[in-house]
Design a protein around this nucleic acid. Sequence first.
DNA 1: ATGAAAGCGCTAACAT
DNA 2: ATGTTAGCGCTTTCAT
Lengths: 311, 311
Amino acid sequence: VAESTQQHVITVAAQLGYVASATAAGLATGRSRAVGVIVPKIDGWFYSTVLASAQNELLKAGLDLTLYRLGDDADARARVFEQLALRGRTDGLLAVSLEVTQEEAGKLRAAGTPIVSLGGPIHGIRSVSVDEIEMSAVVTDHVAQLGHRRIALISGTPGRSDLLLPVKRQVGYELALQHRGIAVDASLIETGSFSVESGYQAAVHLLRDPRRRPTALVAVSDEMAMGAMLAARRLGLEVPRDVSVAGIDDHEHAAFFGLTTVAQHPGAQGARAVRLLLRQLATNEGADEALHDDPQPFELVVRTSTAPPSA
Amino acid sequence: VAESTQQHVITVAAQLGYVASATAAGLATGRSRAVGVIVPKIDGWFYSTVLASAQNELLKAGLDLTLYRLGDDADARARVFEQLALRGRTDGLLAVSLEVTQEEAGKLRAAGTPIVSLGGPIHGIRSVSVDEIEMSAVVTDHVAQLGHRRIALISGTPGRSDLLLPVKRQVGYELALQHRGIAVDASLIETGSFSVESGYQAAVHLLRDPRRRPTALVAVSDEMAMGAMLAARRLGLEVPRDVSVAGIDDHEHAAFFGLTTVAQHPGAQGARAVRLLLRQLATNEGADEALHDDPQPFELVVRTSTAPPSA
DNA sequence: ATGAAAGCGCTAACAT
DNA sequence: ATGTTAGCGCTTTCAT
């Protein structure tokens, strides 16, 4: 074919706005150039950060991101798994903080695509996560090491989809105390729902009575820790003079609040999970690699909300 | 065919985990059973709420949601529009708070699918949005009506993708003041970046000097208003005794802060936009309906952060 | 009513 | 190296 003719065809095609049909290509190749990301919810700093970086990484590879959000409603959750079963819609799956029933795990497998999980260990699949227990133990130990003995915990009620998270973090707290020879006192443990407001309420309960007041307060999430700081101030207590407060996560607002916390890096985790998935897609290798957890880094960030007890 | 044979086939198919290939169906029908949602970013209360409800609504209809996030990076933004041009990946597009260049608008149109926009008027396409100017005027007027005269504004620097939003809200503020016969004082206008922290900084600037201090403070978003409340407290001022503070949006934390604001309903807006899109998909009708804005409801929510000036 | 066949628009394997 | 052709797995139209 003559050079000029080729040029002409290209020009005309462009003018007509021709673009190759992704669907047809998909049929022919058997790949959809899309990966599904399953999240429990999308509001909340952790999820949106993971999602943003996953999207970024996928976009670089020219892959679409199909979003599946489970939500609180059991009905919607069921619909998601149904939809996922529609084989061939995605080339791979990224499951974020997902804890699934046996049946759901089956549907996931039935999707027949590579899966990588982030932050939620699903039996038999590659997972990227941090050591929640250790992370929690690290902050708790930091507080204990400052000399505190009456260290309260604002724990969390597990949601439908992330059951283990608060439990693990509570275990870390207990382990750290035991390690320092401090007895775990159940009356020093309150439960919140991961929101700022619930942290506020829990802290009010814990701090209200001056006789029983702890000298330090560890919250299982930064958002609850911020609520606790607000509560302390409202009760006329100064942080860290009257109470130390520490959280877990290194939320985007943590620096603003001067909150001592353990930082994890959801963006990096998301990117890593996607790259893992991409590699699996490229090499078509399934379970050849070690499936066990791939522990992600975290580090203690000491700011101004913790100090030795003033007594 | 015998009844029993039919049953048998169905059973075997189920056992094999057979599911119809969405791709093949897509090729045959010309529809992908997915809609693309374009957002500037996904962190932030407004976007994640819209996204969640859009996802919900789509799921009910059995449609996938393909997420396109523009991000701050021009490169990534360009890639998104490229990707979108891959015709046939989506049956429709929902553009959230999107402001596009001429060229980008062209690519959007080239996608050849129905588009509905939410919160960002794009020339020639159906859009669901609130009257930003009026919304802002309503809070400002509420504050003025309480008797305040020195009313400061924490405005916003427009992001790459939502240029007009802060401008419109500032216009609403100015209009409301003029309406009450109050001169707009440029020294009473600070600019933030929509974050809690930037609201804090802006408020510090505005409130630091007791002689020039405004008696009330309107922020162009609730997050900045919360930052302002925190700043006021830090400066030893009590809200609303020493300064009134009001915001716009009715953020999920607004009630917790006792913040007076104007509520808009991103969830309802998202659901409405999706339903509009769905109808367009079903009826294949393009521009037959009125394209002009479809104003969404909002209402003033008076809480405890505003009161008459104490002087 | 049921079944056969002709595409949908690509990719990949083939023959030239 | 280039051009040709046979599918990919559905939907839909057409003949039975």
